[in-house]
C-alpha cells in the first residue's frame, strides 16, 4: 500500500499566477505551473525524449516542450500532439500554510 504523502514544494508567494517552477522532490523531477485555472503539478520530463519541460510555454491549460514541440494537458497529463504519444505523470497539489505541497 502506497501512502499519500505531500511534500513541500515552495512557498506560494514564489509562484504567482503565470509562473512555473521545477525542482526535484526526492529524486522526482516535478514541474508546478500556476495558471489562470489553478495550480498544477506534472512530471518535468517530456514523454517523447525525456527532455525538461520547464522552459516550455504554458497556454490554454497546456505546456509545450521547448525542444520538439510536444504538448501536454496540465490537468490530465495527456499528450496532445506529435511527437509525443504517451502522457506525462500528474501529481496532486495543495496549498497548506502558504506552502505549495505536491504528492509525488
Amino acid at each position: 500500500m502506497s501512502e499519500r504523502t505531500f511534500k513541500r514544494f515552495c512557498p506560494l508567494e514564489e509562484l504567482p499566477p503565470g509562473a512555473k517552477k521545477a525542482r526535484n522532490l526526492d529524486g522526482v523531477p516535478v514541474l508546478v505551473c500556476h495558471t489562470g485555472e489553478g495550480i498544477f503539478a506534472v512530471s518535468n520530463l517530456c514523454s517523447h525524449q525525456e527532455k525538461f519541460l520547464h522552459a516550455g510555454r504554458v497556454r490554454a491549460g497546456r505546456i509545450t516542450c521547448p525542444l520538439h514541440g510536444a504538448q501536454f494537458d496540465l490537468k490530465t497529463g495527456a499528450a496532445l500532439c506529435l511527437p509525443a504519444t504517451r502522457p506525462i505523470a500528474t501529481y496532486e497539489v495543495r496549498v497548506v500554510d502558504g506552502w505549495i505541497e505536491v504528492c509525488a
Partner: peptide, 9 residues
C-alpha cells in the same frame, strides 16, 4: 514541428 501545433522555443 508537428502540424497543428504552436509553442515557444
Amino acid at each position: 514541428r508537428a502540424s497543428g501545433t504552436e509553442g515557444n522555443t
